[in-house]
Design a protein around this nucleic acid. Sequence first.
DNA 1: TGGCCGCTTGCATACGCATGCATAAACGCA
DNA 2: TGCGTTTATGCATGCGTATGCAAGCGGCCA
Lengths: 381, 381
Amino acid sequence: MSPPLVPRLIRHEHVHILTQRFSTGPTVNKKSPARRAPTESDVAKLAGVSQSAVSRSFTPGASVAESTRKKILQAAQTLGYHPNLMARSLATRRSNIFALAISDLENPFYAQVVKELSERLRETGRHILLFVSNPDRSADPDLERVLSYQVDALILTATTASIELALQCQKAGIPIVQINRESRVPGISTIRGENQKAGHRIADFMAAAGHKRIGFIGGTRDSGTSRVRQEAFVSRLAELGISDVQVRYGDYTFEGAAVATRELLSQDRPVDALFCASDYMAFAALDVAKREFSKHIPDDLSIVGYDDVPEAAHAVYDLTTYSQPAAAMVEEAIKVIDLMIENPGRRAQRREVRGELIVRGTAKVPTAGVVTKHGKKIWHP
Amino acid sequence: MSPPLVPRLIRHEHVHILTQRFSTGPTVNKKSPARRAPTESDVAKLAGVSQSAVSRSFTPGASVAESTRKKILQAAQTLGYHPNLMARSLATRRSNIFALAISDLENPFYAQVVKELSERLRETGRHILLFVSNPDRSADPDLERVLSYQVDALILTATTASIELALQCQKAGIPIVQINRESRVPGISTIRGENQKAGHRIADFMAAAGHKRIGFIGGTRDSGTSRVRQEAFVSRLAELGISDVQVRYGDYTFEGAAVATRELLSQDRPVDALFCASDYMAFAALDVAKREFSKHIPDDLSIVGYDDVPEAAHAVYDLTTYSQPAAAMVEEAIKVIDLMIENPGRRAQRREVRGELIVRGTAKVPTAGVVTKHGKKIWHP
DNA sequence: TGGCCGCTTGCATACGCATGCATAAACGCA
DNA sequence: TGCGTTTATGCATGCGTATGCAAGCGGCCA
């Protein structure tokens, strides 16, 4: 069964991979790479205490003498012990894992949401189990799995979840929060920006700047967020006597927005102001307008975005936009979740996070109404 | 040793009920929202079989009669049973969770890596536990936690891991793979693009197009990937008689690259060709060059990026770049990991994923060497 | 000195699932 | 019909941690 030593060594030198193959087999055993991880019992043995003492040493607020805890931590250190969170979750029925379902990762706003969420959760020792879904496919079959992983909560953003899933989660006691969505699924809490107010404000802003022929580039046709912004925008413009509003959809994609912009600028009487339902799409619009239509911004065309992603402040974009602070939204989301975890019977919440119309260089500015707040110029008539 | 059967059952019932009481809150109890999730035992009881039969029904390849499996699945269905993956992980010592450590989410390349990885893993029933790290802080304290979650593997990208962490993981039998990094930490497998070849190729390309005064915008100063590209690029240019190469660092950020570009274009004799170590930085360079310096691209200035992110193909950028296919890299990474999981003794692997110099509109094209491959124009002299 | 109290510690068991082993059932073949 | 063989099922136990309960221990006061 075990070949003589010399051939094996020779083989090792020559055929690297082959020797490696044998390393797990029953013959070779030089340094047992898959040693099992130390457990609390191992630590206990080394420290001369019981397993429960070790457990308590790792449980904040548990009753252990300082002296023995020290001894135990010492032993744990030398063994390289790390608590097994799977086992802990089993016992405590709490995983400290949040599921995050998302689809639009290329959009910097959502990248920021992920980042902020990860940061905030880490502060409290929790982590993210990621579900990236395809925007054109239902995320449901995937999300069913959150019921198997015993996640403590489910956060949805740029994704849909069916009512059935919501019900199942509710039955399982898993709080659900959606960020930046308007849909009102019972049992799902909602954190959103002030979509309606923003629509109104931007309409006022453009009208006050003297624009007459205005365009709107929405996200997808079934996006509630986009719809609310659009409706508020269009209706307020109508109140102001501007009823000729061109609407296109960019599907929240870069290329889609570029196409929409081309359409809006290729008409006989092209628009002279454009509200895009996301900064990401506004960037595309900006590029198309400047490069393909040689528009001078903002003299020939005003562009306003939505989100105020970090890139919007960069000199190359300098985008006028309505802010929707990802950090604040994430914080609210976590607050709501913690509330729901503490208090399971609680009803779903709806919260709105405030934003401002940030005045930068891509849109004509009305003569009045610009004020400075926290170092930023905002329009607040 | 074993107490009579009846008392044990009673006690069991008591604990059970108490837990329930507390979990719903002691006061209200109208519709018990936090009902405990059904377990295999519950399903077993309903189906009139043993718990192990249920377990086997959910284990592919286990020995169960088709008739009873059907009965069991039926019972599971009516109870709304979902296997508890924490418990399963405990028992099998496999979580089907991969840890992904990442920092540069705003860079579309990494967004794509996340997306592809998520997609591929889902196909085999695995998921991502996300660790977003701050680029200017060591990810280590955070990554220690991967040892607590019993992840099956650790994937690093746009992040560093210390040798200590690598050793700990190795001891725990957790494979580590880094994507798009050049550092040679023993025990960490590596998937990378052809950084060196790319540096050479782009140097040849620019020289052949007649450029004389050339710039390079690297990532961070300590990025191995960037360094390899730079060294290959600079040394090949030197061989070709071009020794005047300006080097700046954009820290892989948009704004950083914009600043670097301004420097390179503000000089007395500004560069006429620019190689950026990532597309994301190239976008910034493009904008600065066009908007702030009114450069006509590519007549006044050639810009070449690296990565070939989806945006690079968009009409508004139309960026000439060296490709580094995220999907292929992710696939290799998973292959390597699966190999290491199957075969724990295995040595770390280093694999290189091929790319091409994709010819688009932001750089002057040499008279010879352009061929079409898979519908893309590439430079292959 | 005796008794009470508070702090530590260990014991036993539960968490939900997987799996080796033994047993029972079904089947095939002569 | 009888026996060997395969297949299906249940039992018992283990995975690593948390925690209620009881016992031990020391201190403090009367």
